[in-house]
Simulated assay, not measured.
Amino acid sequence: MKQKIKIWLRAARLFSLTASIIPVTIGAIFAAKESKFQLMYYLLSLFAAVLLQASVNMLNDYDDFINKVDTKDSSSSNGVILENLLTPKEISKGGRLVLALGCIIGLFLAFKKGPFILILGAIGALSGYSYTGKPLMLKYRGLGAPLVFIIFGPLMVLGGYFVQTQRISTNVLLLSIPVGLLTTAILHANDIRDIYHDKKAGIKTLSIIIGRANACYIYYGLVYLSYISVLAMTYYRVTPIWSLLCLITLPTALKNINKLRISNGSASGLKALDQETAKLQAQFGAILIISLLFSSIK
């Protein structure tokens, strides 16, 4: 049983789940300055977001395997299907079940907090399913990166905030920019690494459409703009001065950028770049959350 749980956690890509934890938490903590913090509703919104991401990860693995994007020669899969740890049918059923559970929680939150949550949840669920699911298969049409930015940036940050306040804030949307950019960089690092195999499979990710050199520039831009946006928001007092502590993670960001720069198109040299970018996103997001906590203490 313990081994089975480990396999399912691997299928959910546990290392990447900060991509949903960070934005929802940022939205909720930012709301604490304006209203009483509601722990139960925060946990429910967090659980719904994590379930959405886990379902997308599993359904993505299923679709990539069925469409022959993931093979034994590629490095993009987490391996649970290729290593016969789970069957494609099990992954598909698991992804749909987790998505359904997330939707049930979303419906409860919509009932308690208003129809706007229903709208956000519906956009998130449909977008997540359509990431690689038929008929839209957005990742295969070069739309994966913008979709990830929308879901794990504005959608989740605003959702975490709205559950607490039942309001929409321009500042919250601005706050979603750096975390959305870094989360998109995780996917983009994956796509750059997999250009050869993705092209061989006949799909068109953004990295394939614009070419590897330009794809690298986009990765650099996603990372650098995350820091620039925090500097700008701190200057205009959207975020507290404590938010400048995010600059502590800049050496890690530069290390990732340098790894991509010197890779010279080698997929093996970029094997862990998506995981390293996920670590950067988690560190950056955690510091941003702490800075918001400091500013909300009265």
Score class of each variant (00 low, 15 high):
139 K>M: 10
161 Y>A: 12
177 I>W: 02
165 T>N: 08
175 L>V: 13
160 G>K: 05
171 N>C: 01
153 G>T: 11
160 G>M: 12
148 V>H: 07
172 V>T: 13
141 R>D: 12
150 I>P: 00
177 I>G: 02
133 G>Y: 02
165 T>E: 08
158 L>D: 08
145 A>R: 08
160 G>E: 12
178 P>N: 03
170 T>D: 00
141 R>M: 11
142 G>K: 07
168 I>L: 15
164 Q>K: 02
155 L>G: 06
170 T>I: 14
152 F>H: 10
162 F>P: 00
168 I>M: 14
140 Y>T: 11
172 V>Q: 11
145 A>Q: 10
170 T>H: 06
159 G>I: 10
178 P>G: 05
136 L>S: 03
175 L>S: 01
160 G>S: 12
154 P>Y: 13
167 R>N: 14
145 A>Y: 05
167 R>V: 00
138 L>R: 02
166 Q>F: 05
164 Q>I: 05
166 Q>Y: 01
141 R>C: 08
156 M>V: 09
158 L>S: 15
137 M>H: 13
171 N>P: 01
147 L>R: 01
137 M>E: 15
146 P>A: 07
153 G>D: 09
180 G>R: 03
155 L>A: 12
162 F>M: 06
164 Q>W: 05
164 Q>R: 04
162 F>W: 13
175 L>C: 09
167 R>A: 15
151 I>D: 04
147 L>Y: 00
151 I>E: 02
175 L>M: 14
175 L>Q: 03
163 V>L: 12
152 F>V: 08
133 G>S: 12
147 L>I: 13
135 P>K: 14
161 Y>N: 09
151 I>P: 01
161 Y>K: 04
133 G>M: 11
171 N>I: 00
162 F>C: 05
162 F>I: 04
172 V>Y: 06
138 L>T: 07
149 F>G: 01
176 S>V: 07
137 M>A: 15
180 G>T: 05
139 K>I: 10
157 V>L: 12
142 G>L: 10
139 K>L: 11
148 V>T: 07
169 S>M: 03
157 V>F: 04
152 F>M: 14
169 S>T: 08
150 I>H: 00
168 I>C: 12
177 I>A: 01
140 Y>N: 08
133 G>H: 04
163 V>R: 10
142 G>V: 10
173 L>Y: 10
